[in-house]
């Protein structure tokens, strides 16, 4: 079973704070991490490989420093890391990203399965997985919470729905996006880390994947950011003061009507 896992390097958004003075993002100390959902996709791929054999390629699109997450993927069991990177990709929205990753997949050649995290924590769009499936004309299922069975012809998965789950069968090759419930990712192994350190990360530029200029980066993006802002605080605010007990008294007096 040859598997491609799509991995994104994201800022650890939970560390991001707004500077109350300047109302801008305080970036200091924000680390770049592997998108948490992708970690589960990778773990699932490695488990499938351990069971059925085959290879796992970790594929990422991003700036050169995104190489770090590919090395991390190798330390967690991926065989190879491929980075799609080009200044020309900058400004890509989910459409252009789906297109670019799909071109990279075509360039890599044969595969049986593509696994993606449900969404990336910096954008939360959940669009690139289905977008790639559309580009590659692959059957796909999103939000997979369990891989029930798998053989050379197809797989049976549980797809998380709002009101429960569906059990779905689909043929291979296929694309799945996974949720965190699917598995508990492992800690990178020591031997894996040593392998990752030495590994050669393959870099694919726009020309290497035969990407059309008007389909990548800002030019290939149908959506455009018009403005970015931080929301204004609400009106009518009361800040209590005093000891905890005094503050609770004041609050209770205010809430009496609601309760």
């Amino acid at each position: 079973m040859d598997i491609i896992v799509c991995i994104k390097q994201v800022p650890d958004t939970k560390d991001v704070r707004l500077d109350p003075e300047t109302n801008t993002l305080a970036r200091e100390g924000v680390e770049s991490i592997m998108n948490p959902f992708d970690r589960h996709a990778l773990e699932e791929a490695v488990r499938i490989k351990e069971e059925l054999g085959g290879t796992v390629i970790a594929l990422s699109m991003g700036p050169p420093q995104a190489e770090a997450v590919l090395r991390e993927a190798i330390s967690c069991g991926a065989d190879e890391g491929v980075l799609v990177s080009d200044r020309a990709f900058a400004g890509a929205d989910t459409w252009a990203t789906s297109y670019t990753l799909a071109r990279a997949v075509v360039t890599l050649g044969n595969f049986d399965l593509i696994l993606c995290g449900k969404q990336a924590i910096d954008g939360d769009t959940a669009q690139v997985g289905p977008g790639m499936a559309s580009q590659l004309k692959l059957p796909y299922v999103t939000c997979v919470q369990k891989l029930r069975t798998m053989d050379e012809t197809g797989l049976v998965v549980e797809r998380m729905m709002d009101d429960g789950y569906d059990v779905v069968r689909l043929p291979l090759p296929a694309l799945l996006t996974v949720v965190k419930d699917i598995n508990e990712p492992r800690v990178p192994s020591l031997k894996g880390k040593m392998r990752a350190k030495k590994a050669e990360i393959r870099i694919l530029h726009a020309a290497d994947i035969g990407a059309e200029e008007q389909c990548i980066g800002l030019a290939g993006s149908p959506t455009k950011v018009v403005s970015v802002f931080t929301p204004k605080p609400r009106g009518n605010r009361t800040v209590f003061s005093g000891t905890p007990a005094e503050q609770v008294e004041q609050l209770f007096a205010q809430l009496r009507d609601i309760l």
Binding site: T94, W95, S98, T125, A126, V128, G131, S134, D162
Partner: peptide, 23 residues
């Protein structure tokens, strides 16, 4: 932006070369 909407709408947008803004 339900499980169903988030799952197939991106495919539609992609096929139509259309822009899609989530959530």
């Amino acid at each position: 932006a339900t499980a169903i909407g988030r799952s197939f709408i991106p495919q539609v947008a992609n096929a139509l070369n259309a822009g899609l803004t989530a959530d």
